[in-house]
Amino acid sequence: MKEKICFTLNNKYLSIDADLSMRLIDFLRDELRLTGTKEGCSQGECGACTVIIDGKTANSCLVLLGQIEGAHITTIEGLGDENNIHPIQQAFIEEGAVQCGYCIPGMVLSAKALLDKNCGPDKEYIKRAISGNLCRCTGYKKIEKAIQRASEKMKEAENDD
């Protein structure tokens, strides 16, 4: 039962035919092979499948494809590329905030949604922003530090402009 749907994915306008009752995560992974979005629990507990929908984070395991008609979606593939890595991604590398890495795409996107709205968040804001992203390897400290570092770098870059 395929139907038409249009939306913008990582700044690219898409118009496709698909089963609108399929979960957004399945569409991203199985249809588009954008496998940076991870599935960890399938019930909105772990945040590994986090994407940004119109500036707000969402668990893509709890969104149906049909619900994103006309929306702007950002997945981890829509951030930096090989030669032009996003400052949040760079900060995660530099702070050693990455271990097994499975939570990281979701974590980076939660950080992005936060920093897009609030360029100098304090620790409590950072903690709240990533409270829906579980990491089983780290103690979150380095992740918090990385987000702090990214916010400083992004502010510096803004001031340079």
Binding site: T35, K38, E39, E77, Q89, F92, I93, G101, I104
Partner: peptide, 23 residues
Amino acid sequence: KSEKRVDAKDKVMGKALYPGDIY
């Protein structure tokens, strides 16, 4: 001294391949 993980870049970009990512 701290070293950067060799696989950190792939992981932050969402490019690291976990077995579920193989098609």
